[in-house]
Design a protein around this nucleic acid. Sequence first.
DNA 1: GACCTGCTGCGGTTTG
Length: 739
Amino acid sequence: MMSLPPSSSDAPVASFHGLSRPVQRWIRDKGWTNLRPVQAEAIGAVLGSDTDIIITAATAGGKTEAAFLPLLSDALDRPAEGGGFDLVYVGPLKALITDQALRLEGMLEKTELAVHPWHGDVAKTRKDRALKSPGGVLLITPESLEAIFVLRGREVPGLFAGTRAIVIDELHTFLDSDRGVHLRSLLTRLDIAVGRRVRRVGLSATLGEMELVRSYLNPDAPDTVRMIADAGGGQELQVQLRGYVEPGENGSGPSNEVAITRHLFDRLRGTRNLVFAGSRQNVEGYADRLARMCEREKVPVEFLPHHGSLSRDRRAHVEDTLREGRVPLTAICTSTLELGIDIGDVVCVGQIGAPFSVAALRQRLGRSGRRAGEPAILRMYVDMPKLGPQSNPIDRLRLDLVQAVAMIDLLTEGWCEPPAPGTLNLSTLTHQILSVIAGRGGASAARLYKMLCERGPFRSVDQALFLTLLRDLGRPDTALIEQSSDGLLLLGEAGERIVAHYSFYAVFKTPEEYRLLAAGREIGTMPVTTVLAPGMTLVFAGRRWRIVEIDDIGKVIELAPSKEGRPPRFAGDGGAIHDDVRARMCDVLEGRMKEPMPRYLDAAARDALALARGDYDRLRLRGTGMVGIEEKKTLVAPWAGTIRTTTLSLALRDRGLSVEADGAVLEVPCGLENLRIEHLPTIYECGLALSHETGGMLVFDKFHEYLSPSLLIRDALSSRLDRQALGPMIKALLAERCP
DNA sequence: GACCTGCTGCGGTTTG
């Protein structure tokens, strides 16, 4: 008999006894002496009610068991009435589904319940078996679920008739993305197909604002969603931020990159670590420098690159070596190692340059210090260009360093970016319109509207907008849909072709790529937009190569080993920084912090921050937000996030002022008085004028190419631009705030 | 100044 320690309450004991026999036996066989508080609470909540539930706990905190022990127990004790799969698990990664299926198979070994993993790498025979006798647990990706709706629309009601809950793993990855909207749409369509609402259980490690998370799961009754969180917290966080400034013109010494490489080599060798380097190019650059340093010092190479363009083999090797933990290894990586695949515990997390979001920083940090009593260690490195008398005033503000400090500050306060509601997501809506029509062999406009916009996630789309969208999709030159004589909407010629191809199922866009072959083996891929030619050398997968041949039709590049090479550029599409991060950057420059010179800064970072604050004051930016630096050049610092800053720079461009980029501080080619008296008041009066020409430039998402400029503008205004913010921003800039 | 995620049906060949 399992003995449970007399913990703070007898809840765990009650929870244990509420479980079915086979599940109790599994727990006992595992040798568990008690249930974690989250698990005990989840068992009570799942068995004692039918509300939606969100379970949050640290990575490896036992969330999967917390959800599945009671759900499986219920499925064993009360066999489903309607037939079909008893439980559905939706996960964002194929690797995660494979992992979780193995765990569930272990739990269900001595029972009748089957486990059906289902994603692109699962054999067709296995899927056929699941369809022939659906039951037990289906573990699936949103895209594979989409494929079931499109290809087997008529079978959906039967497959899920008896499903008692849908478990969504890594819920945070679905909150604020096209893919998240896609999943919500599929869940609503599933509810409609079975004629009742299927309970949802979300699992997540880190979540921002709870209210928004609740309404993701249940937009009609967010208050009924029960939150179960582990007390956890209280974990010690050790942070160091090291600043690197290139030596002066006559100074000698290593470059910043070499100095940072040296520090990583000295501190991380001999243990397991993750270093997030920001871009694939940077990952390859640091991995190459570290490997050469190991060779020069005649020690084994303990640093390997990991990013999304490397082949599955290369990535698996790094993941397996980390997880097994037999030899020391530091992975230099992009956000690939941020998600839930189990790689074990690492000693420290390195971060080169400020990241794009506090949420990502928090997620990355969760990879270290997972054992009781061990701190989470963050080492941040900021590479700062050399300054001279000719340097741009914006460079003097050291905005990278300031952003890094602002983010660490927000992180320690427990803040992270909340999802942004109210977006239209017209590209994803187009996708779902095509999917519903394909799955049902036709649908009326009224039915589509009710399904997708009234009950589904596209609630910001009103009827008029919906009809405009349908007209766009039905235009002869678009031909995605057409109307039959009795008014039913059917797929058009182009629609048929697009839905029939396997690339339809995902809502996100993927660029075309070359495959890179070395000695006949694929080592990774490169976007076709990268400029490459035979004879060029490059660093890839931590080694140096020469391009032997490029096959433009087969999209294959052959490589041979080389002694030279530079890391190649990959295509990228710019990130969005949140308003609160930029506001905190202003606080950092103006010294409005609990600890104005944080202790976690090293001497070089302190010096750089002190100098940046001095320059900020000398520029007289404090309290004004605008300063003329030349006769026809003004700096504008709205301290707003990417969306609001981009809106302002577009409005300035409407006035004929070409503004570069969308950094925290804008350089406007115009005198201060002219800007203050003429341009800004005019923009305040007239707002942002978006022409059809601008609309043509707003093609970002997968189905945008089929939309007219006016719809593209409306889509952008709901997610990438903020017209309403323009007035208040200008008012703040024009207000005399100086002493 | 960026990163990540996903995918079916069918025809052909090999193996037991």
